[in-house]
Amino acid sequence: MDIDKKKLDTIIKKNGGERNRILAIYQDIQSEYRYLPKEAVQYVCGRLDIPLVKGFEVATFYKALSLKPKGKHSVCVCLGTACHLKGGPAILETFERELKVKRDDTTEDGMFSVDTVNCLGACALAPLVRVDGKDFGKTSPPTVKKIIKEFKHGA
């Protein structure tokens, strides 16, 4: 993976070049690349003089960060308590089955990645699904099929 060093420098600078802002730096890089390339971790650690083990410790500790590339569309199924009790697991299974992919992974064609989250904070609309930042409330296995269609064709 080729990384754009200039871009990374800008991000580091935006965060004041502070070591304690490493999480924020990683998050900014991730919103740029849609994941956190390991080359970027290496580069940032070099620039901020952080030992690589520490840099990767942080990069792997936080769930918000992914060292694996994501699909074109990112599906996030809520499995928080409210969503669990209102059928969240069946929603996840439907995505897995329809897209032929397991959670925390990306479809072979790179179109969809499916992840889970433990509450998106809109529990009154459980079960909830977030696709590319857009929330869908009160979903059910049949509506999952519709959502997939919407993003497949909108793509």
Binding site: R21, L23, A24, V58
Partner: peptide, 24 residues
């Protein structure tokens, strides 16, 4: 400061560790 999606970071000492740029 934005969190990193780890539940344990709500705990006080973990939160502070996270603010210091470490794992929580």
């Amino acid at each position: 400061v934005r969190g990193g999606g780890a539940f344990v970071c709500g705990e006080s000492t973990a939160l502070m560790s996270s603010l210091e740029g470490k794992s929580g």
